[in-house]
Structure formats: structure tokens, C-alpha cells
């Protein structure tokens, strides 16, 4: 009995399965059949006043055309071009905006380098020169601003960086003092702050110069790194001097000449 029941169940299942699989394949095909059926039935369902609808639509079209409404901007939901084209135009826009942004930021960065490190002046035509001048500032400024015989170029490099900076700033300060804008630069602000006021700068500089020339030996242990720095900076200034020279010749001003000399050395 149990066998019969199970046998009957098997038979039923066996018969059901082919039916199911056939209906499955038919079902997929019937999607198309039903679509045909529906399309034929539903798409033909136009009514008597179809002409009336067309007339009104065309009238609206003419009104919009004559009022200039057709020049309206395309919104995102109006753009039904194939996906690739939409993406292409969007990615072109994105690329352009990234390019503009990077140029802007790059310009700001370059300008910041120039204003932070400049030891020369604030004139407009020195933008290019500043890039190299800021990198090579220390070695090039030192030989020209220390005319004392004790300060040879080799001992200058061995000096502590701070003293050299301050000394260079002091020397340049004396040259450009009273010329206006130059004193607005960040370097001058630092110098004035360090001296404790603009009127104290001269005294401060005198003290700095004295102490710097009195202790050249204190920097000797760090000569290795100092040498590296100097060499590297020297290369940079070598690159920069090519750009700079013609300008220096055209405008032989007081604050530029020492620097040109320093580079030629």
C-alpha cells in the first residue's frame, strides 16, 4: 500500500515535471506571445478626437516656439541620450573642472612659496626668480652680505642656519629700508618681530652680525649636512640663474646685484 502510494506519487511527479518544464519553456516564449497580443490590442486604441488632440498639441508647440520657450536649458531629466554620451560629456566637464581647480591650487602654492621665502623684494617681475631664490637663498646670500674677510664662503655654509638667515635679512633690510612695500613681506615681519619693533631692527642686526661672526666654530659638527644642503641648493641656484640673468642685466638694481654675484660664484 505504501509502495502503491509512493509509486502513484512518483508517477504523478514524473508526469508533472515534464509538464512544468514544458510550461517553463513556453512561459518564456509566451512572454513574447502575450506582448504581441497586448501590443496589438492596446496600441490601436485611438479614439475619434485624435485629430483634436494633435491640433491642440501643435498649437501648443507653435506658441512655445514663437515665445522662445524652446531655447530653455536642458535639465538632467531631459537628457535621454544613450548612456555613453551622457557619461562622456559629464566626464569631460569633470576633467575640465579638476584641471581648473588644480591650476588654481598650483598657482596659490607657487605664490605662497615666493612670498614666504623671498629675501629680495616684492616687485612684481620677480615671481619666476623667487622660486629658485627661495631654494638657494642661504648660500647665495651669505657670501655677498658678509664682506668681512673672516667670512669666507666655506665658513658661511657651516654657520647655523638661523644666524645666517637673520644676517642676510639684516643686510638686505638696510638696502631696501625706506622703499615701501618690501617691508611688508613675511620675512621682514619676522625680522621686525624678532627684533621687537621696527626701530630696534638696526640694533638687533648689529648684535646678530657680531654674534654670528664670533661663533663660526659652533657650526662645525654639522658641516656634513650643511655641505649637502649647500650643494643641493647650489644646483638649484644654477638652474635658476639662467632665468634670472637677463632680468638682472635689464634692471641692474642694488638689491639684485649681490644675488647675481652670489650665483656666479
Amino acid at each position: 500500500m505504501g509502495e502503491r502510494m509512493s509509486g502513484g506519487g512518483d508517477r504523478g511527479r514524473r508526469r508533472a515535471h515534464p509538464g512544468a518544464s514544458v510550461s517553463g519553456s513556453h512561459g518564456a516564449g509566451d512572454d513574447t506571445a502575450v506582448e504581441e497580443l497586448l501590443a496589438a490590442a492596446l496600441r490601436t486604441g485611438t479614439t475619434a478626437d485624435a485629430d483634436e488632440g494633435e491640433r491642440r498639441a501643435v498649437a501648443a508647440f507653435l506658441a512655445a516656439r514663437d515665445s522662445g520657450a524652446h531655447h530653455a536649458r536642458t535639465r538632467r531629466r531631459d537628457d535621454w541620450r544613450p548612456r555613453g554620451q551622457r557619461h562622456a560629456s559629464r566626464s569631460l566637464k569633470a576633467t575640465l573642472s579638476v584641471l581648473v581647480a588644480s591650476l588654481t591650487l598650483g598657482g596659490v602654492a607657487v605664490a605662497a612659496i615666493g612670498s614666504a621665502g623671498s629675501s629680495t623684494d616684492a616687485r612684481d617681475d620677480t615671481g619666476r626668480q623667487r622660486q629658485s631664490a627661495s631654494a638657494s637663498q642661504k648660500p647665495e646670500a651669505a657670501p655677498s652680505v658678509t664682506p668681512s674677510p673672516s667670512a669666507s664662503s666655506s665658513t658661511d655654509r657651516d654657520r647655523p642656519v638661523n644666524a645666517q638667515d637673520t644676517e642676510a635679512h639684516c643686510r638686505a633690510y638696510q638696502q631696501v629700508k625706506g622703499r615701501g612695500k618690501a617691508l611688508d613681506a613675511t620675512a621682514w615681519e619676522r625680522l621686525v618681530t624678532a627684533a621687537g619693533g621696527e626701530e630696534n631692527v638696526t640694533a638687533f642686526c648689529a648684535a646678530q652680525t657680531a654674534s654670528a661672526s664670533a661663533s663660526p666654530s659652533s657650526g662645525t659638527p654639522s658641516s656634513g649636512s650643511g655641505q649637502d644642503k649647500g650643494d643641493k641648493a647650489g644646483e638649484d641656484s644654477g638652474n635658476g640663474s639662467g632665468q634670472q640673468k637677463p632680468e638682472a642685466e635689464k634692471t641692474p638694481e642694488a638689491e639684485k646685484t649681490p644675488e647675481a654675484k652670489g650665483k656666479n660664484q
Binding site: A64, D78, R81
Partner: peptide
């Protein structure tokens, strides 16, 4: 029919905004 008529007024007005081909 009425809704289609409304829709066509909008289609006629905004036609200049549309970008795409026939399927679009």
C-alpha cells in the same frame, strides 16, 4: 485622453530642452 492632452502641452512647451534620439 485628458491626461495625454495635458502631457502634450508640456511636451510641446519643453521640446527645446529634450536631448536624445527617437527611443529617447
Amino acid at each position: 485622453e485628458d491626461v495625454a492632452s495635458d502631457a502634450w502641452l508640456e511636451i510641446a512647451r519643453d521640446l527645446g530642452r529634450f536631448k536624445g534620439d527617437g527611443a529617447g
